[in-house]
Amino acid sequence: MTKKQFSRRSLLASTSAAVTYGLAGCIQGEGDSEETTTGTQMGAGASDFDPANPEFPQPMRALIQSGFETGTLEDLENMETRDEPRYGDPVQQTPSNDDDLIDPDKLAFAMTPTEDPAAYRDTMQPLMDNIAKETGKEVEYFPLQSYASMIEAMRSERLHVGGFSTGPTPFAVNLAGAVPFSIQVSDDGAFGYRLWLATQADNDEINGLDDLSGKRVAHSEPSSNSGNQAPRALFENEGVTPGEDYEVSYSGGHEQSILGVANGDYDAAPVCSTCVTRVANSGNVDPTNIKVVWASNPFPTTSFNYRYNLTPEIQDGIRKAFIDYDYSDTKIAETFEGRGKWTEIDYATAYDIILQIQEKNGVEYQTGNLEE
């Protein structure tokens, strides 16, 4: 791991036209029933996929091979800043009164909850070492089992630095005083993920959103952004209303959704692109047997946050530990698909599409609305 000064690139929010395009989702297949291609035919033409001008349906394999599961720095550069979030509260400002600041002896760090709450302890050690170096504070890993408990820990000042995944990030801002300041990127600037609508490659009845009527469609779980909240908002914007035009079945997760599609348990599923790419790369699903019939613009992935009322010196040290170091030669990059660097973000800007989705879905920022 080496220290170097990256350009502190800010994520920018869309212009009004681009925002409309982003919420609408996006990129939709244009073939009609007379011109659709079968899974076998698409497999033969996989090399023809152009990420700059995507057309659907496409084999899942072609999207993975082209890196279409993530966004790029070009996507970021085509956005404009927002001064205030369109929904919910803005990020809280650092208090001007010293009495309102906190200066803990130890800084508690946590990552997004997993089945094994301590799974990321060793992976994130290089980062925690640099937080300690830059702040002069001891850093301890704080394993937590749910987003609700993670948000409560930051709200009560027991958690000071944490990675919140996409959907819970606005909850952390509105309920816990979190300041989202960075996301991970790879050496070539890849970031985030997309929402894909996947079905069987040989399913000739589904080649776009309009074909979901009356079908068995798996959403992952209620609090998931790409697995439930995003499709409810973005699909409706395209004229397809989940729960009305098709019955929603909750699978329990993105892996369960894509495996259910592969096994024929569901006709289709909206899934997180990077999640199902990991499933394919692990050999648990054959991407040649899956096709993607619709895809969204990229979403930001896990945001990294500190609590707003940490002293300015601690805040600055935390930022430096993330932004000024290259972790490409550590377990961090190995674990997170080569994303060994961080770039700065502005919450109102980077999470604009997420806030649009949550506003459209009537999300209320209460811990009870976070699924355990």
Rank of each mutant, 00 (worst) to 15 (best):
V179H: 06
P85V: 00
G177P: 04
V279A: 08
E236A: 14
Y87W: 08
R307G: 04
V217R: 14
Q41G: 12
I314F: 06
G252F: 03
A269M: 10
G283L: 09
N228M: 04
G189T: 00
A218V: 08
T123Y: 04
A348H: 06
S66N: 12
Y327C: 08
W294T: 07
V91S: 05
L195I: 09
D202N: 15
N289I: 00
R9H: 02
A108T: 15
N53H: 14
I64S: 00
I353K: 09
P168Q: 06
E244Q: 12
G29M: 03
D204L: 10
V293F: 13
D116E: 05
S7W: 01
D265L: 13
Q184M: 10
Y308G: 07
E364A: 04
I27T: 12
P117E: 05
Q93N: 14
Q5N: 01
Q93F: 00
R216I: 08
L355A: 02
L63Y: 00
T166W: 05
Q184L: 08
S213K: 15
N237F: 10
K137D: 00
V276Q: 00
E115M: 04
D116Q: 10
K133M: 03
L76N: 07
G162A: 13
A148H: 07
P85S: 11
A262D: 08
P143G: 08
R278M: 13
P104R: 15
Y120C: 03
E157H: 12
I27K: 04
E334Y: 08
E80N: 12
G71H: 07
N309L: 10
Q356G: 02
T15Y: 02
L195W: 02
Q184I: 05
L197C: 01
E80I: 12
E140N: 05
V363A: 02
A348T: 15
T301A: 10
V185T: 10
A280E: 09
I27A: 02
L234W: 03
L175A: 03
P242K: 05
P287Y: 06
Y325L: 03
D105M: 10
Q93C: 01
L101C: 14
I258R: 11
N309T: 12
T40W: 09
A350S: 15
L310T: 11
G362E: 12
N203C: 06
T94H: 09
T37W: 07
G260N: 14
A44Q: 08
G253I: 11
R82S: 06
T36Q: 07
V179M: 04
G31C: 13
D352L: 09
D286L: 10
K133T: 05
D324F: 15
H160Y: 12
Q229E: 09
V293D: 03
G167A: 15
I183R: 10
I131W: 11
S156I: 13
Q366H: 11
R121T: 05
V279Q: 10
S273W: 01
L127D: 01
A153F: 06
P168R: 12
A268W: 02
L310Y: 00
K137S: 00
S249D: 05
G22H: 04
R121S: 02
D100H: 13
N309R: 14
V293L: 08
G252L: 03
L370I: 11
S303W: 07
T36E: 04
